[in-house]
């Protein structure tokens, strides 16, 4: 009887341990994470630099028309980076689990980004995405699943935004697929943006953060104010052929203009090699 009792107690203990530990493959993402900013950071704001992005001609035309004065307009000045681009920018972040008080399951991850104090929630409870007519937001609607030790997140309902902060657009039909991988105190994101309107291929980026206990995200209020007194309805943009800054980036780095105009071919290693060979030839065009 006593032995039976011990066996039953042992079975119960095993059951409790398996219930208390994370589901197989889950990793604790909680904490404050700081970005070392050593990747893709120097050229992100240059007008006319579309290199390394799988954009189509429509995206190129929109970016050519883009004018940075846009950020000063009252209806645009408090826009944060969309979830598709936010990790590329200043994105120290806090990640906290959302716990169901009854089951103690993690039903979601709350992510707060430093810049513009943006908040996103990644639902882990299997809920469906909203219908097409539901509002779109800068952070979109995210659901996640564990694939081994990798958290895979799918985000839809993202506002029309940008893949680089120089006017290269993505549409409101863009879908973001993310894979979050924790290796010790380093958190790595593999971000994949699909946009049927402005990208010819998925745009893939990788970014990393370091765990930084004690880091605190500050408040980041944005107050809309009229900075320049324009007539109502003023929309800053460049007419075709009238953007004077499109060749500046290529000129600064001594590159042929075609090399910075983007497109899927410019994302591949062989393009860099072909470009090197072409530039090595006498009379090769540079910085047009």
């Amino acid at each position: 009887m006593a032995r039976l009792h011990d066996t039953a107690r042992g079975a119960l203990l095993v059951a409790m341990m398996s219930a208390a530990s994370p589901t197989a493959g889950q990793v604790d993402l909680s904490g404050h994470w700081v970005k070392p900013n050593h990747e893709d950071h120097a050229s992100e704001a240059s007008i006319g630099d579309y290199s390394g992005l799988p954009i189509n001609e429509a995206a190129r035309i929109r970016a050519d028309a883009w004018n940075p004065e846009r950020w000063g307009m009252p209806e645009h000045q408090c826009e944060p980076h969309p979830v598709t681009y936010a990790p590329v920018g200043p994105s120290n972040m806090r990640i906290l689990p959302v716990i169901d008080p009854q089951t103690q399951d993690i039903v979601a991850w709350d992510v707060t980004l430093h810049w513009m104090e943006m908040h996103r929630r990644i639902w882990m409870d299997g809920r469906p995405h909203p219908p097409a007519w539901a509002p779109h937001t800068w952070m979109g609607f995210s659901t996640g699943t564990w694939e081994g030790d990798v958290l895979t997140v799918t985000t839809t309902h993202i506002k029309a935004g940008w893949v680089r902060r120089n006017g290269l657009p993505h549409s409101d039909r863009a879908v973001l697929r993310e894979h979050w991988v924790r290796t010790g105190n380093v958190l790595t994101l593999i971000s994949v943006v699909n946009d049927p309107i402005y990208l010819t291929e998925p745009l893939i980026r990788t970014l990393s953060w370091e765990l930084s206990p004690g880091y605190q995200i500050g408040s980041y209020p944005c107050d809309i104010s009229v900075e320049v007194d324009h007539p109502e309805g003023h929309v800053p943009f460049n007419l075709p052929g009238q953007n004077p800054y499109l060749s500046e980036y290529a000129a600064r780095y001594g590159l042929p203009l075609e090399a910075v105009r983007g497109g899927a071919e410019t994302t591949r290693p062989e393009y860099a090699e072909a470009l090197r060979r072409r530039l090595a030839q006498p009379g090769a065009p540079r910085g047009q």
Binding site: C78, P80, W133, K159
Partner: peptide, 19 residues
Amino acid sequence: NQQGGTLVVPGHGRLSDEA
């Protein structure tokens, strides 16, 4: 952050806001 607030029901299309 240029989101939410006044909701706009368009003649056609999704529920929207100022952005």
